[in-house]
Nucleic acid binder design. Structure first.
Lengths: 152, 152
DNA sequence: CCTTGAATGCAATATAGTTGCATATCGTAG
DNA sequence: CTACGATATGCAACTATATTGCATTCAAGG
């Protein structure tokens, strides 16, 4: 059984289990995402990492791509131009909808229960292969709403 | 009452009602989208239009932006890098999920009933402003599945 | 340690979308 | 029908995001 402090802590093991080399950059990317309450863009991650030590942004893209491929991360489309990345859903961390603020560009995780949905019919009848179901709510977050009022 | 042949035929009136000038390019964009079974990217639309007569791609972007702003079109994020555009939902054409094939890049509309969902709780309790709810299923479409088998 | 394949860095390139400004077209007043 | 002002379009340059090719460095197993 896993530790109950945080569902994803042993990132090295996570990488090893996936047959991936354990490198500082990969661990750092995972730590940044684990420390974030919400999915981040490649740019966000690169900027964060660059504060402690230099990493090439291409490396960040490649790490993200690789980790998504191996199911360690998931890639979400925001309502904007950049993808956002978060730790992949698993049993401790079930799939859930996201909120994207079109004013500040921040993405937030919503509770899985906030938008109950039944996928059985779809999964049974869909004639193709279903890999992922993404639900995104776009709008203005509480913070931005407040700022907008102050500006008036 | 509207004609019952197609929910959106009088595009000129649609534009006029929105206070927008009726131009050939705008009508052509709307016709292309009306004629398509699925949402198209700006590139798709530009290529289609270019077959009959030349339009600048910037013009296509600007038309799409404007029509989205006025609620005539809606902009969807695909699982890829390009946004897709379709006629906006209305009473004849309710909101519905979309399917994105990660192999061929085609987007398809699904029936609103295929993924029943209750948004009342979310709408009542969400602390920000909700403008749009987008549901996208990613996977491989029937056609591509077939092709993949043949290639094996 | 060494070796080897994978990871990283760097530069160039690709793709999608945006901006500034000059010209053409739409819609309306006359 | 014509002319005029507002808006749409074209064109070129630019931005943001992501990807590729190739040389160098590093991780993992002997």
């Amino acid at each position: 059984m896993k530790s109950n402090t945080s569902p994803h802590r042993d990132f090295a093991a996570l990488l090893t289990d996936a047959g991936l080399a354990v490198t500082t950059n990969r661990l750092r990317v995972l730590e940044v995402l684990d420390g974030s309450l919400s999915p981040l863009s490649a740019g966000d991650i690169h900027r964060t990492l660059a504060r402690s030590s230099s990493v090439n942004r291409v490396t960040v893209y490649r790490i993200l791509e690789r980790l998504v491929r191996h199911g360690i991360l998931e890639r979400l489309s925001s309502g904007g131009r950049a993808f956002h990345y978060g730790l992949a859903a698993d049993t401790d961390h079930p799939p859930h909808p996201h909120f994207y603020c079109t004013r500040c560009g921040q993405m937030d995780c919503l509770s899985p229960a906030s938008l109950p949905m039944d996928t059985t019919w779809l999964r049974r009848t869909f004639p193709g292969r279903i890999d992922k179901i993404e639900i995104r709510i776009d709008g203005i977050c509480k913070n931005c709403l407040r700022k907008m009022k102050l500006e008036t």
